[in-house]
């Protein structure tokens, strides 16, 4: 069985690193992008099983990326975990995402929930 693929879109270097370590530990193949524009370009090429998506991002904001994923037939199977420190914006997008997590997110929590999403 091929390993699940997770794209982590998070601008904070430390948080991105923690998410990366956490998901690698859960058996994911990961890729980290720290800019909305880059995430957009990558999503035109790859089909991740899970996207861990921050909302406040340089370049293109997370909500636009979420919209792009939802409107793209090719990414129909992709699960989106919205991870944000902005509770208000997060709440607005809760319905469109597969899971909403408010920061701080513990590595254990992320690992467990991501694995549950793709199972």
């Amino acid at each position: 069985m091929t390993k699940p693929f997770a794209l982590i879109v998070e601008d904070d270097r430390d948080i991105a690193e923690i998410f990366n370590l956490s998901l690698e530990g859960a058996g994911f193949v990961t890729e980290v992008v720290r800019d909305g524009q880059v995430a957009f370009e990558r999503l035109a090429e790859i089909v991740p099983d899970v996207v861990v998506l921050d909302i406040h991002l340089p370049g293109i904001p997370g909500n636009d990326i979420l919209k792009f994923i939802r409107s793209n037939e090719r990414l129909a199977e992709t699960q989106v975990m919205l991870v944000t420190a902005d509770a208000a914006r997060g709440e607005e997008l809760r319905g469109e995402s597969d899971l909403l997590l408010l920061k701080p997110v513990s590595p254990l929590q992320l690992r467990t929930l991501a694995s549950r999403l793709i199972s």
């Binding site: 430390d14 948080i15 998410f19 370590l21 420190a85 408010l102 920061k103 701080p104 997110v105 590595p107």
Partner: peptide, 17 residues
């Protein structure tokens, strides 16, 4: 609150690792 959450995530994450 918003600004505190991100560094809290880093502390929590690294401590767990």
């Amino acid at each position: 609150s918003h600004e505190l959450r991100t560094p809290l995530g880093a502390i929590l994450g690294y401590s767990e690792f």
